[in-house]
Nucleic acid binder design. Structure first.
Lengths: 205, 205
DNA sequence: TTTCTTTCTTGACAAACGTCAATGAAAGTC
DNA sequence: GACTTTCATTGACGTTTGTCAAGAAAGAAA
């Protein structure tokens, strides 16, 4: 599954879309953009396929064009979901990719996914060649780091119910797309508790 | 407090130490290193001083040479601690600094601190001038992002008691340096609960 | 459709947590 | 030294959560 990504009409459209995304960026001239586009491959992975297993070394970084990817840990045989990536989000298993160490988590497509994939090796080459590309990456990393600082802070400072309300407000699309037991795990509670939290909220209105 | 940092023997030593840290990095020639060192100023802030207030726009990024800095939010009049920075750690309020928006949190020196400070503006200039410097920054950001991914995952997947045990194992120095009520907040529980958790752990041994 | 599987809900009970209040201990101040 | 302030501990009680188990609802497959 997912080992042999299809090359179809959707793939071509995604390539064009991704290309536009890079070309519109004024930091790049057409030559640079061309080489970057060449380095990126589009992959389609069906729902349920695993992009990265625990123990494997991450070799790629991703830009999600369509679908949803779940990051989870296996703790005492139980899956603990820690993140959902959706459209337009770029991501990688940084610890594993940057240091070449085995990943401690899994990445799973929980919907049919279309991904723009760039190998870490190629990425480094592009950094060397085009400082503008590294600049774009640094800036993106700063944004993401800001997001993570914020998420961690929210998680520390709020209760499960508040976190669910926060999700309702800031990422409502997740609630309809994602199985409730995975959302529960993401909120740090059991599926039963999330069910009760939903009931409590419903009764309050 | 902290508005008028002292220039003393300690400051000079810190400058030398920081300079060595940059010079030893083989990515830089002496000219580059010199300019970077010139751009960085050393500041001493006494215990209790605030580096950044909620509502202010972050203009600097920091490298902590000595002491400990606490990040906290003010939620309904209660301080919620979300991070402790210690020696050798570089940090910034990324969201605020990168986007020029007001900070949603505070940064407080909870010990007498010696900091290497670089303004965001100067930082961007150095990136423009020396791609190697931006490269160093990108790499550092990736490391930090990996750390944050890991921390968030740990927080989601573990209970308060596990988090305390984790702290005992991985950052034991924090436990003796930091008031317990701030640690409790950092672990996401009330001071009373942390006190009881410690008792439980003690009884188990 | 029917059947099977997966997911969600509900109940019951024990464990853990938050809050309020009181007490103790430690550190700093006069 | 005595005093004040701050921080840590302990008890009591109500709320929330986890777990186990059973049943309902929703999807997928035959």
């Amino acid at each position: 599954m997912g080992k042999n990504p299809k090359r179809n009409r959707e793939t071509l459209e995604s390539t064009q879309e991704m290309s536009k995304c890079i070309l519109k960026n004024k930091q790049f001239n057409s030559e640079e953009a061309e080489e970057i586009i060449q380095a990126i491959r589009i992959e389609n992975h069906p729902k349920g396929s695993i992009l990265l297993k625990e123990g494997e070394v991450a070799k790629d970084c991703y830009l999600l064009m369509k679908g949803c990817v779940r990051q989870y840990f296996l703790v005492d045989g139980v899956e603990k979901t820690t993140f959902f990536f959706v459209e337009e989000q770029g991501f990688s298993s940084f610890k594993s990719a940057a240091k070449g160490i085995p990943s401690d988590h899994f990445l799973e497509c929980i919907e049919d996914c279309t991904l723009a994939v760039l190998s870490v090796q190629k990425e480094l080459e592009l950094y060397q060649k085009y400082p503008n590309f590294e600049s774009l990456s640094r800036s993106g990393l700063e944004d993401q780091l800001g997001d993570y600082q914020e998420m961690l802070a929210k998680f520390i400072t709020s209760k499960p119910e508040d976190r669910y309300l926060d999700l309702l407000e800031n990422r409502p699309e997740l609630i309809n797309r994602i199985p409730q037991y995975q959302l529960a795990s993401y909120l740090g509670v059991s599926p039963e508790t999330l069910s009760r939290i939903r009931k409590r909220i419903f009764l309050k209105k």
